[in-house]
Design a protein around this nucleic acid. Structure first.
Lengths: 200, 200, 200, 200
DNA sequence: TATGAATGAGGTTTCATTCAT
DNA sequence: CATGAATGAAACCTCATTCAT
């Protein structure tokens, strides 16, 4: 079950970054080998020196994304009350997407990856990983009465994650026309009010 | 502001339905004129007798979807407490998607429609229309103290819609492996607990 | 050698006229059965009630054109000096094209008809017929010293017809931006000066 | 005003030449990417490595043509009397078409290019460029009394160019059945007789 | 007479990928 | 390591024409 920690060469990282930029700017449909190579200023076959196929590039993008939670949940931040840890995760994600809107385009485009088993599994596993982590924190919070117990942890997770995703989606569809971080904070405050337990 | 009520011929309806089925079964990327015509047992040009272009087929699918809320919010159902109307909307949507999983694939694939202005505008307008309606009900509920007032109506709408969307997405990604309607009901109960006002 | 005088039904004439209009407005490439039927407000198969094929429509257009010289060279006009008869033909053609610019588009688009033997032969025969007639008038004029004899009748014909065609072509390419009839008259005067004989 | 001198790769030149050959042999309607690639013995997409679109191929053909006058009017040939320069241009064009009959098919098919703005503008500009040059020579000749002054330079140009075009067109429509250069020379002699001034 | 529906053939173009150099 | 050239497969779409009704 231990996941292999992939590392990428400098060139690979460039390709990944440029791919993400293309997706952000023009949509995932415009991520073609031709466009990618043109953006990088190299020939099309050059891409294939670094990635076996286009699918592998997409996998690398997702892989790249799957590491984010690991960074966000560093030990020092996970001290303190569960509700604060949850807040931290929520706002960290918001902050991350706010700075990397392309990532949201990729990670929330699950439908696009239906074509390929490896891709759809990867997307699913990232979602699961995240949800499991959040679920654990919520349950921990409930056991300490910091989070209300009359609602199952699973439902709270659904509400928290769903709100986060919907907020980011609206932001992207509106062409990033509002301040995501600011709005994210106020939405979180509302969520907190709803899920908080008696013992604060 | 009045929207034109489009009607479709029998053959057009067949094409729309088959398209939705293809999207449901194999993903939107597999909705090609070739696949579509093969599914219908006709030649490719035959499609063009009924729709001017592929984009128009997708628009028809979205148009089809945009009518759902109208059906769901029929007068008799909109009687009663706001919270019940909201519940009705939530469960109606869940029920609809549970029976038409392909529709969810289309309506939640906003990223795919970035390419075409008409498509992206249509998706956006459907989202807006829905949100506006829900917002109005929530505000009404708040004014009658049926829904809590210490959280803005906008945030409550974000949470309700976000949860709904996320639930449906998970269901689809899991290959419809759980009972969406059942889960939807329990999630709604949780949401209701969170947003309910004093005067019940 | 005697040519069959074709007659057309009212509907056929409508189709021919509309075809000419389409060619005039949008170019011969836009003359498709679809466009034609749409313009006429009928279905596509309806066209085939009246013409066996698209080629036959084009033939009818050419046929239509081939009758023009007959009208223009009516007996009463052919009295008088050869140079005047020639002038009359030149200006009549100019006048006709000036009122029916689409006809020029068809009759001067010889390249387009290469595809089909019947079409290219028809175009060629129209050209020949015209040239023969003009040639005869010139020769007649030469024998009466009304037209100079130190240049072969054939060359004079080439110059007269070539100038006429080029003038009309330029007019069409310039989007009919100058007065064809006026310009035609002055060009004719110049031609006349060049080809006139001693005995005037 | 300085025109960009385009250069073409070896492969591009092959494509241009083969395109011209197809037009010459079967007409411009038969110049399809499919026919072209088949003629070249490559796949259809191969063409697109070398030209962005079919329109660009046609533009290259025209571009190719637009360079001819430049070659023909080399300095050493432009010495001497205007009437001789004019003769030189006339016969050079005749000579060129006689060796490249396909070029005539392209350059005289103005109607075909109506569809595309870039194409029609290019054709028009080639025509204009040529006419302007000829006009200048004629005016020069008139000022030196080498060319008659009682007919405007513009009309002489119309007659010269018109005769040239008509001659080439007839030659093509007759399936190159006469010797164009020979006929061209005799026609030129006739034209010369008509336009020559007193001072020879 | 007219039409709705359909079709075979073919159009231009794009895609991910391969291979010789 | 990189590229120029090429390709099979497939995309969307148009055309002239036919046929049952």
């Amino acid at each position: 079950m231990a996941e292999l920690m992939k590392t990428y060469t400098e060139r690979q990282t460039q390709i990944i970054d440029k791919s993400i930029k293309i997706i952000a700017d023009k949509g995932i449909q415009q991520l073609t080998i031709k466009n990618l190579s043109k953006s990088l200023g190299v020939s099309e076959p050059a891409i294939y020196r670094h990635f076996k196929s286009k699918i592998d590039i997409l996998l690398a993008i997702l892989d790249n994304f799957s590491k984010i939670p690991d960074e966000l949940h560093s030990e020092e931040k996970n001290q303190g009350k569960s509700i604060n840890i949850l807040e931290n995760i929520f706002l960290s994600h918001i902050g991350y997407f706010s700075k990397n809107s392309a990532q949201a385009a990729v990670i929330f485009s699950e439908e696009i990856f239906q074509n390929d088993t490896r891709l759809s599994e990867k997307v699913y596993s990232i979602m699961e990983k995240n949800e499991t982590r959040i679920l654990k924190i919520i349950k921990n919070g409930q056991s300490k009465k910091e989070i209300r117990e009359d609602i199952t942890a699973e439902h709270i997770a659904t509400i928290v994650i769903g709100s986060l995703r919907f907020l980011v989606t609206k932001w992207r569809l509106s062409n990033l026309s509002f301040n995501l971080e600011e709005k994210g904070r106020t939405v979180w405050n509302s969520i907190e009010k709803m899920i908080i337990g008696r013992k604060q």
